[in-house]
Design a protein around this nucleic acid. Structure first.
Length: 334
DNA sequence: GAGCCGTGGAA
DNA sequence: TTTCCAAGGCT
């Protein structure tokens, strides 16, 4: 019986997904570290389907790390708008500037050096080292966690199982084709070894999958239950003067940091109204938006009366440059 | 180390 | 409708 990694690579040679940032397996072409890095950052907690258009747009506007490093902060934030987790965009630009200005445009080719860069954590450092530089690295993302947990029938719930999962992944990671192995594990998790209703009949590793043999593959990985999301409320203010809208750049840290938005009150259980200036505000309705750890309802107020706002400025507005929460409010006012 | 940080699609 | 979750990182 061939080794598991060899069988997985054979499967990958036939079934690898065709992705814009990927070099086909067995191709002689070397992947571009800039494109691998950009794709890996965009893919953090984000689906392939959601990333594709953003990746095409970014690489068209900024084809290499020097071009991206020279971009204005606001340009990059606007291009990232809608993709979520905006700290990634801030770190992306910070990382590009370090690589462009201090490393002569060359991404580091080792895990420890990659880890020092902003926005690159343990997963991304390992992924770039393996995929872009063909270095053996233990690449563990959510897909790999699920595949390995099932393969080894690890019943310890996440996140407590993480050390055991990493050790098991290390044990099956080959020295040859480490980048293809990592991508094969992730493709397997994304297309065969899915969270619900895994297609074990099609799996190249089915014969040595402990969870499948025990009949518990769909139940793994087990997870410690998460607390219910609390409800928060607030007020949002849309002030309009013809084609000009009162908008502000939100503070660099915290919720939606660095993005454009309409002025709001704080988001708490019992928010005080906080209009940017005194005026006869008219209530337009409510917008609801779910975040990772709370559910938000904002009451939307509108005025076309002039005033001296205590924050933000009047400017033309492209709704595509807004995060989704503010797009919803904008839609309510048009 | 546990909480914070978005979004849209699937079931 | 609600819940889950997707190539995680930062503090």
């Amino acid at each position: 019986m061939r080794e598991r990694s060899a069988r997985l690579l054979d499967w990958y040679d036939v079934h690898a997904r065709d992705l814009p940032w990927r070099v086909p397996p067995a191709s002689s072409a070397r992947p571009d570290p800039y494109r691998i890095w950009l794709s890996e950052v965009m893919l953090q907690q984000t689906t392939v389907a959601a990333v594709k258009d953003y990746f095409a747009r970014f690489t068209a506007i900024w084809p290499d790390v020097h071009a991206l490093a020279a971009a204005e902060d606001a340009e990059v934030m606007a291009a990232w708008a809608g993709l979520g987790y905006y700290a990634r965009a801030r770190n992306l630009l910070a990382c590009a500037r370090v690589v462009s200005n201090e490393l002569d445009g060359a991404f580091p080719d080792t895990e420890p050096a990659l880890l020092k860069l902003p926005g690159i954590g343990p997963y991304t450092a390992a992924a770039i080292a393996a995929i872009a530089f063909d270095r053996r690295a233990v690449v563990v993302d959510g897909n790999v966690e699920r595949v390995v947990t099932r393969l080894e029938a690890i019943e310890t719930p996440l996140p407590a199982a993480k050390p055991a999962i990493r050790a098991a992944t290390d044990a099956i990671t080959p020295a040859v084709r480490p980048g293809d192995f990592a991508q094969a594990m992730m493709d397997l998790g994304a297309t065969i070894c899915t969270p619900r209703s895994p297609s074990c009949m099609l799996c190249p590793l089915a014969e040595d999958c402990g969870a499948r043999i025990a009949g518990i593959a769909p139940d793994l990985p087990r997870k410690t239950p998460k607390a219910p999301r609390p409800e928060r409320r607030g007020h949002l203010y849309i002030a309009r003067q013809g084609e000009l809208w009162l908008i502000e750049t939100r503070p660099g840290r915290g919720m939606l940091g660095g993005t454009l938005g309409f002025p709001t009150s704080d988001w708490s259980d019992a928010p005080d109204p906080a209009p940017p200036f005194e005026a006869p505000w008219r209530e337009l309705g409510e917008v609801r938006h779910g975040f990772t750890h709370f559910q938000l309802t904002l009451t939307v107020h509108h005025t076309d009366q002039p005033g001296n706002p205590d924050r933000g400025a009047y400017a033309p507005l492209d709704p595509d440059a807004l995060p989704t929460l503010f797009r919803k409010a904008h839609a309510l006012a048009t």
